[in-house]
Design a protein around this nucleic acid. Sequence first.
DNA 1: CCCGGAATGGTAACCGGTGTCATCTTGCCT
DNA 2: AGGCAAGATGACACCGGTTACCATTCCGGG
Lengths: 341, 341
Amino acid sequence: MAKGQKPTINDVARLSGVSKKTVSRVINKSPLLNEATREKVEAVIADLGYVPNPQARALALRRNFLIGLIHDNPNAQMVLGVQEGILDTIRKTEFALVVRPVDRHSPTLLDDIRHFIEQQRLYGVMLLPPLSERDDIADVCQELGCTVVRMGSAKLDDDEHLVASNDRQAVSEAVGWLAELGHRRIGFIAGPEGFRSARERQQGFTDGMAQAGLTPDPAIMARGTYRFESGRAAGEQLLSAKEPPTAVFSSNDEMAAGLLHAAKERGLDVPEDLSIIGFDDTATAAHIWPPLTTVRWPIRTMASTAALKLIEPTSAGSQPSMFPSDLIRRASAVPYPTEER
Amino acid sequence: MAKGQKPTINDVARLSGVSKKTVSRVINKSPLLNEATREKVEAVIADLGYVPNPQARALALRRNFLIGLIHDNPNAQMVLGVQEGILDTIRKTEFALVVRPVDRHSPTLLDDIRHFIEQQRLYGVMLLPPLSERDDIADVCQELGCTVVRMGSAKLDDDEHLVASNDRQAVSEAVGWLAELGHRRIGFIAGPEGFRSARERQQGFTDGMAQAGLTPDPAIMARGTYRFESGRAAGEQLLSAKEPPTAVFSSNDEMAAGLLHAAKERGLDVPEDLSIIGFDDTATAAHIWPPLTTVRWPIRTMASTAALKLIEPTSAGSQPSMFPSDLIRRASAVPYPTEER
DNA sequence: CCCGGAATGGTAACCGGTGTCATCTTGCCT
DNA sequence: AGGCAAGATGACACCGGTTACCATTCCGGG
């Protein structure tokens, strides 16, 4: 079958008796082309199974069709969701997705990224949190002629190239839900300093408490790193407060799982003794016991939109860049006080 | 700074007063080159920040430097681990990693894959389970001139292009551990039919039981799909057996989490009433309560090795292609009978 | 002193596409 | 019928590298 060599535009031209240029016109759907010619050439293309060489195209056009995804593993499901979302958009196009996990603590981070972009001559890149919050990275990319789209939590000044979730409002609603369930002593576990998402979620907590007419108590608030262990540590701190909380909002699911462990270790039952709400709706959230009430944000849709902004900035201008999140109500948050015990 | 245009090999040649060819020789580290010339050219390259255009190279060499990762999301952490492993290998090379999540139930799967490979002119592809078990997919890739490396569970006939974990032995050891803890009625939740990993793990279970001098009881064995819900269903089945198991090995962590839910719903305590061992050591395993005893296999190392086999088949010939797994002992498996209750 | 061969660098063609511009039809208007 | 505009197609250079092949320089040996 395979002659060993892939057919080229020259083969197509020769076999259909036209010039390279005409074949090129057919491929690119040029409007000024005789219908009969087009059909003839298309028949040959189909017959040969000809596929244009993307490297040659890239060379001639002086632009290529690779988009890069740079991230420092915020969490596996998010990264994969993003990849799927991007693919939803580019699957039918000639673009391809090149990934690059990096280490944000590496001293050569900026150079690594620069090298990656230059070496592959990327068309555009997408940045995921927490990398997406660093302007220096975005600057490097732009300097290199890449369009950049960042995914993350909302930012005050509206940025054309940001696709964000409205964490603040989502958290505010989650806290509202706890208040509605009758909780008054609501604790909070914040994310690490310097992360916009952490700030946004904290603001949401403050907003939600205010709206419910409650005053946040610093004694039952702690800060974590978004990792499991830090959640457990924060949990121990909160639960050993003089007046422990009856409900806690954790800035992500992983820390919520840690908090759950801390509660179990103290002999507390969740949700009977403590209601918990997390954030992200990772796989873990549904798999722990009790299933975790949490906030789900539309990663895949956001990534898909972000990809569209990357490859078609014009038509994507109308696309929203702020996405709402949903509170997924599961068993970890229940009314307080619980029925007599 | 940037003149808007990237420097080309011609610029380097002109500025260093040599021909393109000489510059090319410098780039490719040709041995027959005057040392002084090399240094002069390298100075200019560094000065200009010149990076060879990969598309032009690909065109001239008639081979490119993209490797593809095709998968149907077996689980997010595994996919991400694989990506990181591959990057460990290719980071210092000129290769890049292009990803492509696919839907294995799509009727156009084979065409999608073919299209992906042809459109990007991939150099090689890596297949993840369960795709890696389908010979038709591997055949398509090879037909298109791609080298293929498959990751998965061991296969009897030794395949040069397979990087595998020894699931069978790992499960056998896990079951041995349960027996060592004093368990006699050990249940099993199998993976879906048609998956090699499922068969291997089942074999491992059979082996382990035999080695411990125990006879598997079909009444406390069930089959799942590797998903959470199926684990819960299997758990209900096993636990409602006339003589329920005192320990269960689940073929993956997600089903183990389901089993845990089933146990809780029946009012059983884990691990007091039921010991559980899972497989994969996903994030969930460490985050559920109790932390899950499970089998961890070296995804990242395996992927890194697989990538090496892909880009340097010769030097990687000596690399192992079968990797051992570790039993991670956590709190979900305890001695039986438990201290008096 | 001349010649052959190794060491080095240059030239031109090519990889597989695209852009520019010229050429050749064709149809329509006057 | 002649002129002309518009439509269709082709010739050719070019994108930024690589390779095949040739030209030059510098040796040492006869």
